[in-house]
Design a protein around this nucleic acid. Structure first.
Length: 261
DNA sequence: ATGACGGTGTGGCACCGA
C-alpha cells in the first residue's frame, strides 16, 4: 500500500499535474492539501477517470481544503477535528480496508501560524492541542493510523536549510517542535526518518529568489505512522520532480510504502 | 529589505501562504 501527501496550492490550477503524477505514481491513496475550492468544484470525474473513484473531500472557498483520493472504498469519513470548533477546512479522515485489516488515515493542512506571538500563532497552538486530543481518541480505537499532511513545522534542524538564521521563527519555534514531539508521544513515528535520507531533504521551497534551484527549503510535509506499523514501512521518499514542473506547487509529494500483506 | 512569487477574489489591489 502506497500513500502520498501533496499540498497542491490550488487543485484547480494543479489538476493536470496531479493526474500526470498519479499516472506515473499510481499510489493507493493521495492526500491533498490547499485545494482552495469548494466541494461542488472538486474535479471528481477527472480523478475517477484516473482510477481514484473514492474521494473524501472537505472543501472551502479560496483557502484551505483537503481531500483523500483513493483507489479503494473509504469508510467513516470525518471532517475537521472532533471537539474543536473550526471555521477552516483543514482535516479529513477516512478508513481504508487492507489485507491486514482497517487502516485509519488522517490528512491535515496544519495552521501556518504567521509569526510567534501573533493571533494566528495562538490559533496554531490551540489547533494542535485539539488535533492531539482527538488523535489520542482515534488511536485508542485500536486500528493502525497514518497521519499525513502539511504540518507547517520543521521537526528539527535537519528539516531546514538555515537552522541558525531561522531559529525560533515560524515553522522553527520550540513550541511548534514540542507539538510535533507531542504527536510522536501519542505513539507515532516519523516514517521519513526511519531511513537514511539525502542531506538537505526538503518538501517545500519558496517561489521567490530561486529557492528551489538553490535548495533553500524546508521539510514541513510529513508522514507519521503508528508504532504498530513501523516494521511494515518499506520506504519513505520525497519526490522532488513535480517542483520542476511549469507552474509548480511550492510543495512536492512525500510517499510512504507499507507492506500490509 | 513587512519585499520577492503565486493563488484567489470581483480586483484595478489586498490578503494569504511559509
Amino acid at each position: 500500500m502506497k500513500i502520498a501527501t501533496w499540498n497542491v496550492n490550488s487543485l484547480a490550477i494543479r489538476l493536470p499535474q496531479v493526474v500526470e503524477w498519479l499516472s506515473a505514481h499510481p499510489v493507493d491513496l493521495l492526500c491533498l492539501q490547499e485545494l482552495k475550492l469548494t466541494e461542488d468544484k472538486f474535479p471528481l470525474e477527472a480523478l475517477q477517470a484516473a482510477g481514484y473513484g473514492h474521494c473524501a473531500v472537505f472543501g472551502q472557498k479560496t483557502y484551505n481544503g483537503v481531500a483523500i483520493l483513493s483507489r479503494h472504498p473509504l469508510e467513516n469519513v470525518h471532517r475537521n477535528i472532533a471537539g474543536f470548533e473550526d471555521e477552516q477546512a483543514r482535516v479529513v479522515a477516512a478508513t481504508v480496508h487492507t489485507p491486514a485489516g482497517p487502516l485509519r488515515v488522517v490528512n491535515g493542512y496544519f495552521v501556518n501560524g504567521q509569526a510567534p506571538g501573533s493571533d494566528k500563532f495562538a490559533y496554531k497552538m490551540r489547533w494542535l492541542d485539539g488535533l492531539r486530543q482527538w488523535l489520542a481518541a482515534e488511536m485508542s480505537l485500536g486500528a493502525p493510523l497514518v497521519l499525513v499532511g502539511d504540518f507547517n513545522i520543521t521537526a528539527d534542524d535537519r528539516d531546514t536549510h538555515d537552522p541558525e538564521g531561522l531559529r525560533e521563527t515560524i515553522h522553527h519555534t520550540s513550541e511548534e517542535r514540542e507539538q510535533f514531539q507531542a504527536l510522536l508521544s501519542l505513539g507515532l513515528v516519523d516514517a521519513f526518518r526511519l531511513f537514511e535520507q539525502p542531506e538537505k531533504s526538503y518538501s517545500w521551497w519558496d517561489y521567490r529568489e530561486m529557492a528551489f534551484r538553490r535548495n533553500k527549503g524546508l521539510r514541513i510535509d510529513h508522514i507519521l505512522v503508528s508504532q504498530a506499523l513501523q516494521p511494515r514501512v518499506r520506504s519513505c521518499v520525497i519526490d522532488r520532480a513535480p517542483r520542476k514542473n511549469e507552474r509548480p506547487s511550492d510543495h512536492t509529494p512525500v510517499v510512504v510504502e507499507l507492506d500490509l500483506g
